[in-house]
Design a protein around this nucleic acid. Structure first.
Length: 580
DNA sequence: CCCAGAATGACTGACGCC
DNA sequence: GGCGTCAGTCATTCTGGG
């Protein structure tokens, strides 16, 4: 009997069929092209909307469409790119420069920054930030959602007028409604169309591939290069250093606007779609992300980006250092581990586990051979083991990790997520969405000597309390913790941990980040005197590679809650002055 | 309704080879 | 550089049984 009886090739064959149905959608669906050809309905045009979503200004796109029509997107894109270059539309770094024409709009919060002698660049940044805040407040007062307003400001830049911003939001809302009304078939086509064009856009704009003729120099300007350089994922992914690897980075420059206290710590998946980390970084005061893979802290990989304003000198790890290979972490698996499975680390612990059916299939595939199975079988088994993080628990027998094993790997106390009416499935889900405690603790360790009497913590998107557990394990007393978490079972887990660890401080929990407005913050901060640290890992749903359905980027349904992290952080930063 | 299992690819960076 | 290949990824949604 050979390996041909198993179906490890069918996956690839099936994929080919899907290709044909989606590869020829570079042109618009028929209905749209006709309807959009008159400029009267330009506000509803999908083409217009599409390019606006790419980041071009609405005015510019309208102009180009009126000039060239909607049919040839290649031409449109080319024109837009050269327009952009010619008009030198604001690049990210230029965007934060103040507009002299709008300086009279500077709000009262500017006064907070004006008590120093030197008028530095960083102060100008601060000034623009407060101007943005005023615009933001105006939009919110007008009844727009915070994240919509933030996206609009982000898209159109700080110099955009209130009118332009309102217009942008209107178009975005219309597009959203229209998208929802579209029949499934058309919607699919439109998505494919959008994706394929988006890809080209990236090729042109970000990667500099296949440059349109005559625009090379203008489009491929320095700023893009610098930004690419700055946000390149480090290899090895050790950020500003890890305890187990030698590192040479001991200093970094934090933009003045970002310097704490209060300290902040933001986390999300490192492998987000292109441009996401640029945007996040830009919002978080242009602090450069620290990309770290938790495989340098434990036996499982976890590639994450962290943006924080903490010092990076004199960090120290939690002790004892956790096992950093699979065999050290799970000694019992050693006996059954075949020599041809060369893994020493697990891949990222996710929210779903491998099925029993799969492990059974693997057992049957392997057990028929006395010696090592043929290479094709090895390849299949290894592929599945890597994909589902399976370990060898018996002769020819693989299995997914148990929830308590995941807890241990992530640095939580055993049974942290157990009990309280939580199902096994939900334990995996909560754990999969959590911090790796040792990694986070290493970054937060510098706070210990700064706050010997403890800290006040604002924990957004707390989940199962990774930040709280990290600080506790570091021996940093928790005076007051405001924990914001949507999931009730997760709140129960944190509450239960809080009680079991005999915390002396106070734990306040809040359901929804949207509830946390200026008034509520003022109320909380006045009772215990401000926050020392604001931690949060906003939802990754729409950023994570595993998401086949709605990997929509930072503006996705859940992931756009990042803008609430920023909103709250900015509020706390501005309110903190009076508590210092 | 709750729970567990199963099916559902795309995107991106790294690397070897030419 | 260009191109093919490969590995890896904090997931969503439907279904079926209790």
């Amino acid at each position: 009997m050979g390996g041909d009886d198993f179906d490890w090739n069918t996956d690839d064959e099936l994929e080919i069929e899907n290709y044909n149905s989606s590869s020829s959608c570079l042109t618009l669906p028929n209905g749209d092209a006709g309807e959009a050809s008159s400029s009267a309905v330009l506000a509803n045009s999908k083409v217009l909307d599409h390019f606006v979503n790419m980041g071009f200004s609405r005015e510019m796109v309208s102009k180009v469409i009126q000039e060239y029509g909607e049919e040839n997107e290649d031409k449109l894109l080319e024109e837009l790119l050269s327009y952009k270059a010619l008009e030198s539309s604001p690049q990210p770094q230029q965007r934060i420069e103040p507009d002299p024409c709008s300086s009279e709009n500077a709000g009262s919060s500017w006064d907070d920054f004006s008590d120093t002698d030197i008028f530095s660049d960083d102060e100008e940044i601060a000034k623009t930030m407060s101007e943005n805040d005023d615009t933001l407040r105006s939009l919110v007062k007008m009844g727009y959602k915070q994240e919509e307003a933030l996206v609009a400001i982000e898209r159109l830049g700080p110099n955009a007028s209130l009118e332009e911003l309102v217009d942008f939001i209107g178009v975005a809302q219309m597009a959203k409604a229209e998208d929802a009304l579209l029949p499934p078939e058309e919607k699919l086509q439109y998505n494919d169309y959008a994706k394929s064009n988006k890809r080209r856009f990236y090729d042109y704009e970000v990667l500099g591939r296949k440059k349109p003729r005559g625009c090379e120099k203008k489009i491929l300007n320095e700023d893009d290069d610098e930004e690419d350089e700055a946000l390149h994922l480090p290899n090895p992914m050790i950020g500003f250093g890890v305890p187990t690897e030698s590192s040479f980075i001991t200093h970094r420059r934090i933009p003045e606007d970002a310097i704490g206290p209060p300290y902040f710590y933001y986390e999300n998946v490192a492998l987000a779609p292109k441009g996401v980390w640029q945007t996040i970084s830009r919002f978080l005061y242009d602090v450069q992300p620290e990309f770290v893979d938790s495989k340098f802290f434990c036996a499982a990989a976890r590639k994450r980006g962290y943006i924080h304003n903490l010092p990076i000198q004199n960090r120290f790890p939690l002790l004892p250092l956790p096992p950093r290979t699979i065999h050290e972490a799970f000694p019992l698996t050693k006996k059954w581990w075949p020599s041809w499975d060369t893994r020493t680390k697990l891949n990222c612990l996710q929210t779903c586990i491998g099925s029993a059916k799969l492990t059974e299939r693997i057992r049957k595939a392997v057990e028929i051979y006395d010696e090592d199975p043929p290479e094709s079988v090895q390849k299949f088994v290894l592929h599945q083991c890597r994909k589902w993080n399976l370990v060898w628990v018996g002769r020819n027998k693989v299995a997914p990790l148990e929830p308590d094993e995941v807890e241990t790997l992530l640095g939580f106390p055993r049974n942290h997520t157990r009990g309280g009416g939580i199902s096994r499935t939900d334990r995996y889900k909560s754990l999969g969405n959590s911090f790796q405690v040792d990694t986070v603790a290493y970054h937060l360790s510098v706070l210990k000597e700064m706050y010997p009497n403890g800290i006040n913590l604002l924990s957004l998107f707390s989940g199962i309390g990774g930040a709280e557990v990290a600080l506790h394990r570091l021996g940093i007393p928790l005076k007051n913790v405001v924990s914001v978490e949507k999931s009730e079972v997760n709140r129960n887990i944190v509450r239960s941990w809080w009680e079991q660890t005999n915390q002396k401080g106070n734990l306040y929990d809040i359901d929804d980040v949207r509830e946390l407005d200026g008034d509520r913050l003022e109320q909380l901060m006045s009772t215990f005197g401000g926050f020392d640290l604001i931690v949060g890992g906003s939802p990754c749903n729409n950023l994570a590679g595993s998401n086949r359905v709605s990997r929509d980027g930072l503006e996705g349904k859940e992931s756009s809650l990042f803008f609430d992290y920023f909103r709250i952080l900015d509020l706390v930063k501005n309110m903190s002055a009076k508590y210092r």
